[in-house]
Simulated assay, not measured.
Amino acid sequence: MTNLPVILFAAKPQRWGQYEAPLRAALADAGLGDATLVTEAAPETVDYIVYAPNSDVQDFTPYTRLKAVLNLWAGVEDVVHNKTLRVPLARMVDDGLTEGMVEWVTGHVLRHHLGMDAHIHGQDGVWRAGIVPPLARDRRVGVLGLGALGSACAKALHGLNFDVTGWSRSPKSIDGTTTTHGEDGLADTLARSEILVLLLPDTPGTQNILNARTLALMPKGAMIVNPGRGPLIDDDALLAALDSGQIGHATLDVFRTEPLPPAHPFWAHPSVTVTPHIASETRPGSASRVIVENIRRGEDGLPFLHLVDRDLGY
């Protein structure tokens, strides 16, 4: 390394307070403590952008020296198709984010598996005995999406002895988990999933993957857990399936519009649990180390990690 890089932090102002110290610490640990880390810089001087897609930086054309854009989020759907972005784009793949997602998913799958809501919300003097759930080995769980997060969740659920089937658009292999792919595999996975976890990216090929037709393939009364992306589900079709009893409950952490508008019917529906996009927050400490590792690699002439495939969109 010769000239130390200029790193632009481009995100909402409150994020700077969360990330400045962890990023500076990670830079120091990587031998880059003298690098310039700023929230404002002349575009032609910037080597790397630490980026949130909702930042003010939307036109990358002026950044003529830019080597890479390092996304703060796992999701890249709001930047991957930006035609002004012509340098490598790295998504956030962070052990802390993965661990948080596994914890959230396993918690809600267990909640639905055990029928905990009947007792949590039924504090009305009624002794609700005699309803015994199956053991985990007899509960069929499906996971749509077998990337880093989906694979980790499938492994964790298998470790709890659930009968897990995972689906992806292309063939994948996960120890202990039955995997399927393609249209036939999707139909088979849906047909057996008493609890379904959605961890697909938001792409044209995954939008509305749960719709009136595919929801009808699921076992009657199945539960849906969506910490993936809001557009994976046709909202109106889900509400109709909930009203008919085809779907027993939906726990939703992500939505087409966020925050979820107060008048949206999900809020008042008795068979919907809304959580405010908290399934797995990026942790500044661990995320900063991931970002700085890519900066170090860029400065040392090594390939970047976790690059986005622009054609696939993730």
Rank of each mutant, 00 (worst) to 15 (best):
L66Y: 01
L32S: 02
A30G: 05
P43K: 10
N54C: 03
K67N: 10
T39Q: 15
E77R: 09
Q58G: 14
L70Q: 11
L27H: 00
Y63H: 07
A35K: 03
N82E: 14
N71A: 14
E40T: 14
T36P: 00
W73F: 14
A52M: 13
L85F: 05
N82A: 11
T45C: 05
V69H: 01
D47E: 12
R65N: 15
I49S: 00
P53S: 15
V79M: 09
V50D: 02
H81V: 10
D47G: 14
I49E: 03
N71C: 13
D56W: 10
D59P: 03
V46A: 07
A21G: 10
E20F: 05
Y19S: 08
V50K: 03
A21R: 15
A41T: 07
Q58I: 03
A35E: 06
Q58V: 13
G33V: 00
L23I: 10
L23T: 03
N54S: 13
D47N: 15
N71L: 01
V79A: 09
A30Q: 00
H81R: 15
D78R: 15
T45G: 00
V50A: 06
D29C: 02
T39C: 04
N82Q: 13
T64Q: 12
K83H: 14
V80P: 05
D29G: 08
K83E: 14
A35R: 01
P53N: 12
D56G: 14
L23R: 09
V79Y: 07
A42I: 11
L23K: 00
N71Q: 12
V46Q: 05
L72G: 02
T45R: 13
N54L: 12
E40M: 03
S55G: 11
T39W: 03
L72W: 04
P62F: 10
R65V: 06
W73I: 00
T45V: 02
W73E: 09
A25L: 12
T39F: 05
Y63A: 04
D59V: 06
D56L: 12
L70C: 09
T84A: 04
G31H: 05
P62K: 07
Y63F: 15
P62C: 05
A28R: 14
I49G: 04
E40D: 15
A21Y: 09
T36Q: 13
V46G: 05
K83V: 11
A35L: 00
Y19D: 13
P43L: 12
Y48W: 12
F60S: 04
V57W: 00
H81G: 01
R65I: 01
V57H: 00
N54H: 13
R86S: 00
V50I: 15
T61Q: 11
L37F: 07
A42C: 09
P62A: 03
L66S: 10
R65G: 11
A74T: 11
W73A: 12
E44G: 09
Y48D: 04
D56Q: 13
T61F: 09
L85W: 06
V38M: 10
A35V: 08
A42W: 02
A21E: 15
L37G: 00
R86Y: 07
V79L: 09
W73Q: 12
A35D: 11
L85M: 07
L85T: 04
A28E: 13
N71G: 08
V46L: 01
I49P: 02
E40Q: 15
P22A: 05
V38P: 00
P43M: 08
